[in-house]
């Protein structure tokens, strides 16, 4: 009877210790998994931002006017610049539901037109930036 009692105590102690060790290790692993998820999301956003910026750059090279770019990219022309709003799935949307923003600011110097292309999230944090230019042969008026 005494022996069984002591075996039960040992068993329960072992179970408690095992649970404690498992809890500590799983909390560490959960932290690693959360970090992995965050990194994965960031690299997905960066990939999409690069693609979207490239589209913007090529649209600018084709038609370096804000209105024309807005038409090609399904965005809006505001104050001489072109803004395209994207939702979480990187589909063009309205300003209200935007998770990401593509901002193209065209400028002109002599016969050269150049643009700064910025992809940022809804909080304004920069994800990717690009500069591109195109020769039009038309002097600035």
């Amino acid at each position: 009877m005494k022996r069984q009692h002591s075996r039960s105590v040992v068993f329960l102690t072992e179970v408690l210790l095992a649970l404690m060790i498992f809890a500590m290790c799983s909390s560490v692993c959960a932290g690693l998994l959360v970090r992995a998820y965050r990194l994965s999301k960031e690299s997905g956003s960066l990939n999409q931002a690069v693609l979207v910026a490239q589209s913007g750059a090529e649209a600018f090279k084709n038609r370096p006017e804000a209105q024309a770019m807005a038409l090609i990219l399904q965005g809006v022309a505001e104050e001489g610049a072109c803004r395209v709003y994207y939702d979480e799935g990187w589909q063009p949307t309205t300003a209200g539901g935007a998770a990401y923003i593509l901002h193209i600011v065209p400028q002109q110097r002599a016969s050269l037109r150049f643009a700064e292309i910025l992809v940022s999230d809804s909080k304004g944090a920069e994800i990717f930036k690009l500069e591109t230019s195109v020769w039009t042969g038309e002097e600035a008026s």
């Binding site: 998994l33 970090r35 960031e42 690299s43 997905g44 990939n47």
Partner: peptide, 19 residues
Amino acid sequence: AVLALSSAQADRRLSEKNA
């Protein structure tokens, strides 16, 4: 957990290289 983190870090490095 370590494999998931390692894979995510490799993806991140590749994305940065592409950019």
